[in-house]
Design a protein around this nucleic acid. Sequence first.
RNA 1: GCGGUCAUGGCGAAGUUGGUUAACGCACCGGAUUGUGAUUCCGGCAUGCAUGGGUUCGAGUCCCAUUGAUCGCCCCA
Length: 426
Amino acid sequence: MNFKIPRGTQDILPESSAMWKYVERKAHDLCRRYNYKEIRTPMFEQTELFQRGVGDTTDIVQKEMYTFQDRGGRSLTLRPEGTASTVRSYVENKMFGWADQPVKLYYIGPMFRYERPQSGRMRQFVQFGVEAMGSDDPAIDAEVIALAMSFYQELGLKGLKLVINSLGDKESRNNHRNALIEHFKPRISEFCGDCQGRLEKNPLRILDCKKDKDHELMASAPSILEYLNEESKQYFENVQSYLSSMNIPFEVDPGLVRGLDYYNNTAFEIMIDGEGFGAITTLTGGGRYNGLVEEIGGPQTPGIGFALSLERLLMALETQGVSLPVESSIDAYLITMGDDAKKKAPGLLHKLRSEGIAVDTDYMGKKMKAQFKAADRQRASFTLILGDEEIAQDTIVLKDLNSGEQEQLTLDKAILKIIESKRGEE
RNA sequence: GCGGUCAUGGCGAAGUUGGUUAACGCACCGGAUUGUGAUUCCGGCAUGCAUGGGUUCGAGUCCCAUUGAUCGCCCCA
């Protein structure tokens, strides 16, 4: 029996896990600076949470959820995104009553969607997301956007494009929605089947249909921006002026629509120009969701957040040839010769390691020459050589692999030298 | 759910109109160098070409099916 990894999943092997760790650290570090606190929620939830929180009409709920029954007959679903869980926890733990408002949270973890895998789209993928709940100050919208942009920029990504839009508040949305229906209804038969279905359910989605994008009614369709009421318009302008004051360039795209139902006012996406990027250009999606907490059973509470995929980030870094400062090397490699030395190795290694030295040795019965090669491959700074001569004199040979110089000295002195050299590097 | 492409050693990859010993490179192991990592040279490393059927005197090469990977559509992160 040969076992294979499930479709749409991947093993992250040591050569890339170092990069994962690096970008995760970057996210943690950034959130610390912005004062967002980490939240860890379960990887599965009651199915109904996602139906309510993500929206029954969305593709995610309709065809992409990993849903199963547990032994108690409860319907559970592997989380397809992080916001619903975060909001559930917010409500369940009564965070609306916490002293510090807004409540600023972030998460990093795997999400699951049952889809055909392709470039930048996996069945299990890792999202880094941020949620700020309790404030509807446009400054916090700008803060959340700035956090996402900084994340990419500090990692060295180029060619980013921030696209923003306003979906308006409830009133603006409704007016716009009616205008759209009026606009498309007379000639809806000229559109694809999907769009015909969208007309009543969610006419906004017609606007980002790829099949019908050249239809003349698309260009002339009423823009949400024309339907923003005074309050929403002011809000959007404030967000823009905050972004400008942070020198974050952006583009307003009235066609930017969110796939998830709970968004209102601010919506944004961070995209990347992409050779080698295929169909995927969206790195981050985010926006404001003032109705969601209530939908999940909490008090009326505004919120805003984003989610971004670490897979796509790493893909972007790779296509741009950005090399992360990840290094896997050890301080020393112990080379033993002869049975006596071999017997002393474990005790010696233990001592070195307890001194904080990263050290390894041979367990394959290799000859000395092969042990040197292994030391090289592991990019060890030093080799420690232990043979009969050294044992007889109660010493060890310390060789600097960069300079090639070596000397015979006591173990304690060798340890001091290695530690000294480590300090020099830092 | 629907399309395109692909599937040869640890990895990258040759493999011509089907023809008998499946190139080559990298990595790895050993030797030249019996206590020192470069280079060089020599040697080793696929009873098998995703799986199962079929055509044929003969199949990695042709046909069918299955599985998987990958890219795209839909949609999104």
